[in-house]
Structure formats: C-alpha cells, structure tokens
C-alpha cells in the first residue's frame, strides 16, 4: 500500500495547508488547497520580507540558485512526467522546464550588460541606466502547460531579483505544488518564491488590488481577467504584463518586463 502525499502550498519556505482549511479536487482525485485571500496576504508579506536579501544577492549567486532548481528538477524528471499525465509530451514538457531554469540561470549576470546603458549626456556627468527588480511580483501561471507555463514565468521573474507569489494553474495545480518541493531544496531563502493553488476568481482580485504587490505577470489571465486585473492594479499603479504571443518563448525580455530602470547621474570633476 502506497503512502499518499498531501499537496500543500509552498509559503515562506514551508509547506502549509490553506489557512481556510478548504480544498478542491481539480483532477477528481487529489485534494488540493483552495487558498484564501489570507494565504495570499501571508505570502505577499513573506515575499516582501525576502525582497531586500534576494535582490541584493550577487547576480552570480542568483544564477547558482536558479541552476540548482534545474538540478533538483532534473532529478525528479520521472515524477513530474507522471504528474503531467505521462507520455512523450509530458516528458518534453519536463525537459523544457529543466532547460528553462538552466537558461535563466545564465541570464542573471547578463541582464545588466544586455539592457543597461551608459548615456552620453551633454555635460560633465557620468550617466548610466541599469535594470533593477521591481519588487514583489504576482505571477498568474497559464492554465496550460501546467508545469512549463509556470516555470517560464517564474524563472524570468526570479532571475532579475524579484520575489514572487505565483498562482498555479487552477485546473492542473499538482505539478506546480510539487515544484514547490523542488524550489524548497534549491537554496532560495524562505519567501523568495511562494506557490498557491485555488480558484482564480477568488484570488485574482486580491492579488490585483494588493497595495504591496509591485507587478503582475498576467500570462494566465483571460481577456476579461486581464481587464479586471489592470483596473484593480491602478490602486498602486502596478505594472501589468499582459499575456503576449511570445509568452511561451525563452526571452530575457520576459525578465526585463518585470524590472525597473534606474538612471544615475554623477559629476565628473577633480
């Protein structure tokens, strides 16, 4: 007789049930936490707390952590393939997810060189612009593909130094919640990345209106949801990245879209 796993949220570095005590059965079998606004609130708090430390890690160190995710995921390939329904397509999805972490692990220390500029201003000033993480990012994972969709957005957001609260696919959250276990063993400081499952309709408004969330990657939003998110986001002028045709692609811009640009002026003199 097998020992079954209780699927839990990954919050502030720990595995927890929803504070609401509710679950739902997206696949008709497994009980999955149906998170509440309070779970979301706690995660945002954890993500805010983790932001200064994570964003000020060296880019090299963030790359190492992201690469560690690839290592951990690679070791659990078979489990994820099964979670995703087995078969070749599932295997390819897991491969691509591993590749995504490797790819963004290599971007952490290149974003500044790729997107930063030194600006030749007309005066005796040294002037440069560099990307910086925007802060706490809410990631709305696409419903499909259940693992890769989340991983693509998560890796991009984390690579620039943001901390993340991610909404897993509502219909297929098991891979996302299991990914929490991978993230937990990848040297992320607690709170840097948080994963919650549940009903979009319940959670999105709270995420979109939360005054301590700086940006939302709306990759998984429907057109209606996007409009609602954008409207609620105006409360604190969140940056909202709409789902784009290239949302599936590997691109440094997926990370840069969730970053600010800071320009620094300094006189040149003796």
């Amino acid at each position: 007789m097998d020992v079954r796993k209780t699927y839990k949220l990954y919050a502030a570095g720990e595995f927890v049930r929803s504070e609401s005590g509710r679950t739902y059965k997206p696949d008709g079998q497994n009980n999955v936490p149906r998170s509440s606004r309070k779970d979301l609130r706690d995660m945002v708090k954890a993500a805010r707390g983790a932001f200064p430390g994570w964003s000020r890690r060296t880019a090299m160190n963030r790359g190492q952590v992201l690469y560690r995710v690839a290592e951990m995921l690679d070791g659990r390939r078979a489990e994820f393939r099964d979670l995703l329904g087995g078969g070749r397509a599932a295997g390819r999805q897991v491969d691509a997810a591993v590749e995504t972490w490797v790819w963004y692990a290599g971007w952490t220390d290149k974003l500044h060189q790729f997107a930063g500029t030194v600006n030749p201003v007309a005066g005796p000033y040294f002037n440069f612009t560099l990307p910086e993480p925007t802060g706490v990012v809410g990631v709305v994972a696409p419903e499909e593909p259940a693992l890769l969709g989340l991983v693509r957005r998560l890796a991009a957001a984390l690579c620039g130094g943001n901390t993340v609260v991610a909404l897993a696919s509502e219909r297929a959250p098991l891979a996302a919640l299991t990914l929490g276990e991978v993230l937990a063993t990848s040297d992320f400081p607690p709170g840097v990345v948080n994963v919650l499952s549940g009903k979009r309709e319940e959670l999105l408004p709270w995420l979109a209106s939360h005054m301590d969330v700086n940006a939302i990657d709306a990759a998984g939003c429907t057109a209606d949801q996007l409009g609602q998110v954008q409207e609620a986001a105006a409360g604190n002028l969140k940056r909202v990245v709409p789902p784009g045709p290239g949302a599936e692609a590997l691109s440094p811009h997926a990370g840069l879209d969730l970053m600010e640009f800071k320009t620094v002026w300094h006189p040149i003199g003796v």
Partner: peptide, 19 residues
C-alpha cells in the same frame, strides 16, 4: 534608493540620452 533617477552630488539634470 527605490527611485528611477538618482542624482549624486547634483540634482534636476536632464538629457535626451538619459532615461
């Protein structure tokens, strides 16, 4: 500084090349 422009030992400088 959580700010888009930081002026060090100067202030309110602007230039077309500078974001």
């Amino acid at each position: 500084m959580r700010a888009g422009v930081v002026w060090a030992n100067t202030f309110n400088r602007f230039d077309p090349t500078s974001p």
